[in-house]
Amino acid sequence: MSMGTSETPTLIGRPSVEAAGMPPRKRKPLGRNQKDEALAGYLFVLPAIASLVVFLLGPILVAFYISFFNFNFLDPENAKFVGLANYWHLFHDPQFLRALWNTTLYSLGVVPTQTVLALFLALIVNQIRGKTFFRVAYYLPQVTSTIAVSVMFIFIFSQQGLLNQFLHLFGIQGPTYTNDPKFALASLMVMAIWSTSGQFMMIYLAGLQDIPDEIYEAAALDGASGWRMLRYITIPSLRRVTFFVVVMSLIGTYQVFDQAYVVSGGDGGPLNSTMTVVLDVFTKGFKTMQMGYASAMAFVLFFIILILTLIQHYIMGREK
């Protein structure tokens, strides 16, 4: 071949249809058997799609619609369109602002504590024998009824409960913690940390077992200590797991309802110290029948969780 001659390069292996100068092949239409298989696949997923539309997407759209109305399910014919008035009134409602503040404090107390505790427990369980036993033992509170756990902690934090009996050994007489505005919210935090740390420990344990042992062996040959391995290998390798744990924990804490309902008897007491956003939504929607206002509160909570999740995703992305 002469130096001045240009030639279309060919691919190594089988030449493409365009390189061979042939017209592209038309895709064959699906045969009858393939159409039947596709139809069978759609029919199999149809119940799941229908249930999502009827029980998830549909109620969300209806709730968003009625959030612009003064709406009562007992008298839907007299619903009155109020536009953004429900959303505007939220930020002038002292009870909602108190509920949002309580929920934020609750989240700030529970999320970091249970994340660190879950990681700590996972590191311990990953290094000892009998992992199955400890998995069951730490995960057991997660499958226990929330009502039963709440009743148990009400007894522990009562005037004659186990906590005060222990403090009495040191000459300390404690109050009924769930009825004291100073300690009621903290009691809910302790309850949540105890009941959910095992769940996130299981997630961290799975993440730890996915880290290759060769990385630790190479670090040990280079003289790295256990603390350095934890700081520079384990924690960075668990970044995605930590993001998942924090986001799920954040969503769970901002949606706390059942513990607050049981401990306070449904009124968020004492003195609104255990009033959470979801409990306030329940009170407005099903006790005072302000369903439009309650729907607006629910969507404000949704946007708060969404913003916090995006912030967390941005922070984790920058660290990466």
Results as ranks from 00 to 15, higher is better:
Tyr293Ala: 03
Ala220Val: 10
Leu310Glu: 05
Val151Cys: 12
Phe81Asn: 11
Gln290Asp: 15
Leu11Met: 14
Asn126Tyr: 01
Lys80Ala: 15
Leu167Trp: 10
Val53Gly: 12
Val17His: 07
Phe243Ser: 11
Thr103Cys: 04
Ile305Cys: 07
Ala219Gly: 14
Gly161Ser: 03
Leu238Gly: 11
Ala186Asp: 07
Pro112Tyr: 09
Val300Cys: 02
Trp194Ala: 01
Ala63Met: 13
Met3Trp: 11
Leu90Asn: 04
Arg239Gly: 11
Ile60Leu: 14
Ala50Phe: 04
Gln259Tyr: 13
Thr115His: 07
Ile311Ala: 08
Thr283Pro: 05
Ala294Leu: 06
Leu205Gln: 01
Gln142Tyr: 11
Trp194Pro: 02
Ser67Ile: 01
Thr10Asn: 12
Asp258Ile: 08
Leu46Cys: 02
Val245Leu: 02
Leu30Lys: 09
Ile203Gly: 08
Thr144Ser: 12
Pro15Ser: 07
Val110Arg: 00
Ala220Arg: 13
Gly269Val: 02
Ser195Gly: 06
Ala20Asp: 11
Pro141Cys: 03
Ser145Val: 07
His168Trp: 13
Gly4Thr: 14
Val110Phe: 00
Val17Asp: 14
Gly285Thr: 09
Val54Leu: 12
Met202Lys: 00
Trp227Glu: 09
Leu163Val: 14
Val62Leu: 13
Leu271Tyr: 14
Asn102Ile: 05
Asn70Ile: 04
Gly41Cys: 08
Pro181Asn: 12
Tyr254Gln: 00
Asp213Tyr: 04
